[in-house]
Amino acid sequence: MLAAVLHGAHDLRIEAREDRMLLPGEVRVRVRAGGICGSDLSYFNKGSVGDFKIREPLTLGHEVAGDVVAVAAGDGFAAPAIGTRVAINPSRPCLHCGFCRAGRENLCRRMRFLGSAALMPHIQGAFSETVVVRADQCVPVPADMPYRLAACAEPLAVALHGVRRAGRVLGANVLVAGAGPIGLLCLAAALHAGAGSVTVTDLFDGPLAIARRMGASQAVNVRDDAGGLEHLAGAAGGFDVALEATGSTASIVAMPALMRPGGRIVQLGMLPPGATPLPVNLLMAREIDLVGSFRFHEEFGIAVAALANGRIDVSPILSATFPLAEANAAFALASDRAQGAIKVHLEIG
């Protein structure tokens, strides 16, 4: 099978990889579409994501959907029938540790997440013609659901988990920092949860225009209007909830001053390695909660359902589709924020 394999920063090759035999409880999926994620872009451009560095060739990709083509029964998992269209949950937790038993599988210390360099050997990803996953990682979708829409279940699940970590959002004045894919999906998820208003920030006007289309109350270009966000925060007495989706040190450092007393900041973006200086006295004096949000668990099934029944519309973020053979061009477009591309997909099978 052919796969998009990264050998180092800016060294992405389309090359042959061998299929492996199925173990009991596993299925083989013919991948039809895959979305390029921010972590894929970080691996591609930097050779790392946060503290996770590429140490061997890595097949990228974890936002994928396709068709089940083979099943190995057994091991206690109910497998979808051959021919079923599925969205693939890239998380493969151990199911036995304390975190898994407590319903926090996303914190599993033995997690095997598709397309990740967190472990050695790396967990190979799914930008390949076929991929083998555990049966419980396959979530059936309607037979007429476009593959690239089904592939959006993973980033939407990230956003849903981030909003869940924010606590009570109903009626809240929400700030979303970053109008990339996760930021825009956080906007959609916050509105779905009943947010009273959502302000979105970015450095480029193109993504902010999409944020307005998706229901943002305010869209602020913080590069061109340096004081605009502070003015909005001051006029409203501060934001109740902030979702930091840029992974920018400057963004999280500035955020506590924008919050009302008792507010909550959720960090979704992966920050650069090392320590980040924060105004901790401000967090303390205003009793502002700062919490992390890492991946997702049960939100994946919720995301599939929300996409299938149209409760959350992600069509504004779908930007372009490239064949697998043109993966480098796809990554170049997805990396160029100035061109306004949000979610770029690979058409694989």
Rank of each mutant, 00 (worst) to 15 (best):
T249F: 04
A195Y: 06
E230L: 13
D224A: 15
G183L: 05
A193C: 05
E230T: 13
G183C: 04
S197T: 07
D202V: 00
V253I: 14
S217K: 11
A190E: 03
C186H: 02
G196F: 04
V222N: 08
A236E: 12
D205L: 00
A188M: 04
L243F: 11
G234V: 12
D240K: 05
G228Y: 11
A242Q: 08
G183M: 04
S248Q: 14
P207A: 06
F239L: 10
A195I: 05
V222A: 07
G215H: 07
V253R: 15
A219D: 01
G228R: 08
A235N: 12
C186R: 00
L208D: 00
R213G: 01
A189G: 06
M214S: 04
R223P: 08
A211V: 01
G194D: 09
H192S: 08
S197I: 03
A242N: 09
G183Q: 03
S248T: 12
A236C: 10
R213L: 07
G183R: 01
P207K: 03
L185T: 05
S248D: 14
A188V: 03
V253K: 13
G228L: 09
A188I: 03
S251K: 06
S251N: 11
A193N: 04
V222K: 06
G194V: 04
G206C: 08
P207W: 00
S248G: 15
T249K: 09
I182Q: 04
D205E: 13
A236L: 10
A233P: 15
L191T: 00
G238I: 11
D240H: 14
I182H: 01
S251I: 15
D240M: 05
G238A: 10
A226F: 09
